[in-house]
C-alpha cells in the first residue's frame, strides 16, 4: 500500500492542452474520487497515473517512487476499465490469473488468490466460464477480481459502473466501498456522477476543463464549495443561484429589490442557496411564486420564480405539501448556509 502524489501535472495532445497543472496528495488507504463533467480530463488524468498516457509535464509519485518513466506493469497498480476489458478468449479463472502468471507466482499461490477473490466477489461458480457467458454485473465483478488478485499498491477505476442498470449500480457502489475498506488499499475512482462521488469518496477532486476546482471531503464540498462550479455540481437538486448587490450598509440587494443581511463585500455577488436550506416562513424575505410541485414523499420540491422576476428557484420542504400554482411563499435562510461568490471569478467569498 502506498500514498499517491500528483505534482503539477500537465497534458497536451499536440497543441491542445487538456490538463493544466493538477496537484494533489492521496493518503495511503484513502479512497479519492475524481469527478467532473464529460470531457474535463478525468480519464486522461487517471491514465497518466496508470502509465497509459505520456505525462507532458509534472510528476507522479507512488509512495516515494517517481513513476513518470515506468511502464504500467512496473507501477504496481491495477485498473478497472469502463468496458471491463476482460480477455475474451480466456476463462474467468485465466483472466484473473493472467497477471499473476506473468509475475511468476507459483501455481498454488495463484489458485489460492483467485479462489479467495472469487469468494469475496461471489463469482466462484463462474470461474470456468468465458466472459461472453456472463452478465454485465458478473463481468464487472471479474474485472474487480482481476484487480484484487494482483494485490497492487493502488487501485484505479474509470467509470466502472456506468454500463450497469441503476439498481445494480447502487449495489456495486456499496460493494466497491466495502471491498476497498476491507483491503485497505489506496484507490482513485473516476466518475461523472456526483452522487456516486459523494457516497464513495473519502475525498473528492472536482475537475473542470482541466483544472482542479476543489479537493476535499464530500462535506467540505457540500458545506463550503470553493467555486460556483463546485456549488452547482455537488448536491441534488442543484443549488439556486441569484445575482445580488452588496450595499455599503452590509445588506444584500436581491434582483427584485428585496434586501437581506449578510453582505461580505460591496458590489455584485452571486448568491447560492441550496433548496433544502430554504426555510419556509411567512415573514421570510425570499419570496417565491410557485409554479410546479414535485412530490417525492419524504419531501416536496417547490419550483417557482423569485417574486417579481424570471429567476427560477427550487425549494425543498420536508413532508407533503399541497399548494396551488401562483401562490407566493416566503423563505428564510441561515447566514452560514448562504453561499457568496465573486460574480466575475466564480470564487467563494
Amino acid at each position: 500500500m502506498a500514498s499517491l502524489t500528483l505534482k503539477d501535472l500537465y497534458k497536451s495532445y499536440g497543441n491542445t492542452e487538456v490538463l493544466h497543472g493538477i496537484s494533489g496528495e492521496i493518503q495511503d488507504g484513502e479512497f479519492v474520487v475524481i469527478v467532473g463533467p464529460s470531457g474535463c480530463g478525468k480519464s486522461t488524468l487517471l491514465r497518466m497515473i496508470a502509465g497509459l498516457e505520456i505525462i507532458s509535464a509534472g510528476e507522479v509519485y507512488i509512495g516515494d517512487r517517481k513513476v513518470n518513466d515506468l511502464e504500467p506493469a512496473d507501477r504496481d497498480i491495477a485498473m478497472v476499465f469502463q468496458n471491463y476489458a476482460l480477455y475474451p478468449h480466456m476463462s474467468v479463472r485465466q483472466n484473473m490469473a493472467y497477471g499473476l502468471k506473468i509475475r511468476g507466482i507459483s501455481k498454488k499461490e495463484i489458485n489460492r488468490r483467485v479462489e479467495e477473490a472469487a469468494d469475496i466477489l461471489e463469482i466462484r461458480e463462474y470461474l470456468d466460464r468465458k466472459p461472453r457467458q456472463l452478465s454485465g454485473g458478473q463481468r464487472q465483478r471479474v474485472a474487480m477480481g482481476r484487480a484484487i488478485v494482483r494485490e497492487p499498491e493502488v487501485f484505479l477505476f474509470d467509470e466502472p459502473l456506468s454500463n450497469l442498470d441503476a439498481k445494480l449500480r447502487v449495489q456495486m457502489r456499496l460493494e466497491i466501498r466495502k471491498l476497498q475498506q476491507r483491503l485497505g488499499v489506496t484507490a482513485v475512482y473516476v466518475t461523472h456522477d456526483q452522487v456516486e462521488a459523494m457516497t464513495l469518496g473519502d475525498r473528492l477532486m472536482v475537475l473542470n476543463a482541466g483544472y482542479v476546482e476543489q479537493f476535499g471531503t464530500p462535506l467540505e464540498l457540500y458545506e463550503r464549495p470553493a467555486s460556483l462550479f463546485v456549488a452547482g455540481f455537488i448536491g441534488s437538486p442543484a443549488m439556486n443561484f441569484l445575482e445580488a448587490k452588496g450595499q455599503p450598509d452590509g445588506m444584500l440587494q436581491l434582483e427584485n429589490g428585496v434586501v437581506i443581511s449578510g453582505a461580505k463585500s460591496e458590489g455584485p455577488v452571486t448568491l447560492g442557496m441550496r433548496p433544502e436550506h430554504l426555510i419556509e416562513d411567512t415573514e421570510g424575505p425570499i419570496r417565491i411564486e410557485v409554479s410546479v410541485l414535485e412530490q417525492l414523499g419524504a419531501n416536496t420540491l417547490i419550483h417557482g420564480t423569485l417574486e417579481g422576476t424570471e429567476r427560477e428557484m427550487v425549494a425543498s420542504l420536508p413532508g407533503i405539501h399541497q399548494l396551488e400554482p401562483g401562490r407566493v411563499l416566503g423563505f428564510l435562510i441561515r447566514p452560514d448556509e448562504l453561499h457568496q461568490f465573486d460574480s466575475k471569478t466564480g470564487k467563494r467569498l
Partner: peptide, 27 residues
C-alpha cells in the same frame, strides 16, 4: 480488438511480445 484489452494486459505486466502471443494472436 478493444484498445482497453491491450492496455489491461500491459497493466497486468505483459510486454509487447507477450501481449502479441497471448492476446492479439489468439484473438
Amino acid at each position: 480488438i478493444p484498445k482497453s484489452v491491450i492496455e489491461a494486459a500491459a497493466i497486468d505486466g505483459a510486454g509487447p511480445i507477450r501481449r502479441f502471443w497471448t492476446i492479439i494472436f489468439p484473438l
